[in-house]
Design a protein around this nucleic acid. Structure first.
Lengths: 170, 170
DNA sequence: TATTGTTATACTCTATAACTATA
DNA sequence: TATAGTTATAGAGTATAACAATA
């Protein structure tokens, strides 16, 4: 029902005007809803694309329970062992406060380990565990499978073009 | 400091091994951090791009205090007056539960109004208020300015290509 | 029974601020 | 004083489930 408890000024006004049908506009069957100015906005298209791509990534890696951000953190640590949390956070554009929780969960799963830095006692050197290295290899195979889904969806050549266009943001 | 209250199994193990420096790996000055497999992932590039584009949108429309989702909702209602909440939610890929709060805030600002549908007493017909129509015109001008920032960032032609490639997601 | 709008909950993510132990 | 890691909080956003009124 359309009942609203904290009835706003506008809704109240509308209730007092039940013969509003005349200005209600067309009924819109379902497919004829135009996007108007949104069609020309890169941000709108990118948002819709990212929703699709993240959902496919999560689904494709559901068996190993790894999400895009966790994958990116493990990949960067794997390729650059010994990085500090600040370095990883800056490189990936993640808040350092958020990285704390991400690493907590990866460490609980014995995929990543924080090793006290011998040169700076404030910081941790991040490493994949032995188990983490093996797991990451599997994650990469699944991520490559996801990437093939992307190519199937937008076309192989378009995927290449997209990567080139957006290379300046990596 | 690297103190952790709920010291995990791994962290505890690391503390017992303070001579870990030998396996700490290179020090990584700051720019030489490789992304490894992430370079080939469309999802990673898209995520970084969307962060940039949303931040620019929010900044460019900060004076009018309108965020991307609010803009998309107003634009669709403006182009299709009388739509139900379900229709807007479906068209934009927003959860209908979330749209409730989005409309609450837009209605409180007298930009949108919920009018009881005369044909289906469960649903609301959504309309821009007079104030909303005027405001949306201004929002569109600012959004176009934001879109020029995008073109400046990735190139005019690349922006066109991007819109073509992602047209299937709108 | 199914749908619309609503409320509520939980979890992810972004953005801050503040605290501590170090540098 | 500045920095690294941590904790906490607030708000956006996603994903659900449940409920009342209505179809």
């Amino acid at each position: 029902m359309a009942t609203r408890q904290k009835t706003s000024r506008k809704a109240a006004a509308a209730i007092r005007r039940p013969r509003a049908r005349a200005i209600n506009g067309a009924a819109h069957a379902g497919d004829d809803i135009g996007l108007d100015a949104l069609v020309g906005h890169a941000g709108y298209a990118v948002r819709r694309f990212q929703l699709w791509i993240f959902q496919d990534f999560i689904k494709t890696l559901a068996t190993v329970d790894i999400r895009p951000t966790q994958y990116s953190v493990m990949t960067v640590i794997g390729a650059n062992p010994g990085l500090s949390q600040m370095a990883v956070a800056k490189r990936l554009g993640i808040e350092r406060a958020r990285l704390v929780h991400l690493l907590d969960s990866l460490e609980e799963r014995d995929l990543v380990s924080r090793i006290p830095s011998a040169t700076d006692r404030r910081s941790h050197a991040l490493h994949l565990t032995a188990r983490g290295k093996t797991a990451l290899a599997q994650f990469k195979r699944l991520a490559a499978e996801h990437e093939r889904h992307v190519a199937d969806k937008i076309g192989k050549d378009n995927r290449e073009r997209l990567l080139q266009i957006l290379a300046c943001f990596t």
